[in-house]
């Protein structure tokens, strides 16, 4: 049982990291998007493992469902594919890898110093239920919740305004 959990964790983790790497390194943007969806599924699995059932479902719906569809839609709208893709010069790529690697090293070094409380012996599965989250969200976090709705509304209006054709004479796209 224990080993199974660990195995599951390792599989999900390696899947997430592999998909993440493929997202970055895929030559075709469409492939990148598809690998990102895979990565999201792996993360959803992690959520389940961490007894955040509701969040896992929302994650799938929002990210894999809504956001990634938006990405793919945009990619197809712009008709981007492998041939049109431009790549950075080799030096910039090496610089990017070194920078990211340094950040990784430093982050790991920081986390190694983290002093943590001892892990709880038992897991409370109720914290991830809709009931608990709903109560917390609508009691303690009511004001931020309402703000989030205003934010989404604003974003929607903003997106419509930004993306609509302003002058048919000058825009051929």
């Amino acid at each position: 049982m224990h080993n199974f959990t660990l195995l599951l964790f390792l599989i999900l983790s390696s899947l997430a990291i592999f998909c993440g790497l493929m997202t970055v390194f895929s030559r075709n943007p469409i492939h990148s998007a598809l690998f990102l969806i895979g990565c999201f599924f792996a993360i959803a699995g992690h959520y389940l493992l961490l007894s955040a059932q509701f969040l896992a479902i929302v994650h799938i719906i929002v990210y894999a469902g809504a956001i990634m569809v938006l990405f793919l839609f945009t990619l197809m709208l712009m008709n981007l594919n492998e041939e049109t893709e431009q790549h950075k010069p080799a030096l910039a790529k090496i610089g990017a890898v070194i920078s990211a690697g340094m950040l990784m090293l430093v982050l790991v070094a920081v986390f190694k110093r983290a002093v943590l409380a001892p892990p709880p012996p038992y897991q409370d599965f109720s914290i991830g239920t809709i009931e608990t989250l709903g109560k917390v969200l609508l009691n303690e976090f009511l004001l931020p919740f309402e703000f989030a709705s205003v934010l989404l509304l604003t974003a929607m209006i903003g997106a419509v305004l930004l993306a609509k054709k302003q002058n048919p004479n000058t825009n051929q796209a």
Partner: peptide, 10 residues
């Protein structure tokens, strides 16, 4: 993130 993606892609 949803808001950001919507605006960013726009």
């Amino acid at each position: 993130a949803a808001a950001e993606v919507a605006v960013g892609l726009a």
